[in-house]
Amino acid sequence: MSAIYGLYSDPNVAQVAVNNLRAAGVPDADITVISSEPFEHFEFGHRDARTAMPWIATAAGAAGMVATYYLLGLSQHAWPLVTSGMPVAPLWTNLIIIFEMTMLSAIAATVITLIVTAFIGERGTLYDPEVSDGYILVGVEKTGDAGKLESALKIDGGRVKSI
C-alpha cells in the first residue's frame, strides 16, 4: 500500500478530514488534497497559497524593460539610418516597444513559474478519476501508521480507499 485517501462530496467534510489528519500528526506538506475546482473559501484550499509569483513577474518585467532598452538602442545604432529627421534611437517611440516587451516578459515569466511550480514541480501521483465527478480527495502518499490514517479519514460522508 503506497497511499491512502478519502473521497468526500462535501468540502466541509473534506475540511474535517484534513483537520483529522493534522491531528493524527501528519505534516501539512504530506497531506494531498485534490479537487476538480479550487476551494478558495476553505482553509484546506489555502495551504500552499504563498508564492513568489508576483515578484518573479515584476522582476522579469523589469529585466525585459532594461534588456529591450539596450537591444533597441544597439540595433538602431548598428546601422544608424536617419528617418524623418528623428534621432537614431528616439525614446518616445522606443518606449512603446519597451512597454510591450516589459509586459511580455512578465507574462512569460508568470507562465514559466506556473509550469515549473505546478507541473514540473508536482511529484505526487495520487489520483482518482472520481474527482472529476466532484469528489474531493484527501489523502496521504507516505503511509506510516495506516490504521491511524484510515480512522482519521473515515468520517461520515466519505469513503476511504487505499492503493
Partner: peptide, 17 residues
C-alpha cells in the same frame, strides 16, 4: 523633405534619408 513624414513610418527602412 528634410523631415520627411514618409520615412519614419516605413518598417523596413525602404524609405530613408
Amino acid at each position: 523633405c528634410d523631415n520627411a513624414p514618409c520615412e519614419a513610418v516605413c518598417p523596413t527602412y525602404a524609405a530613408h534619408h
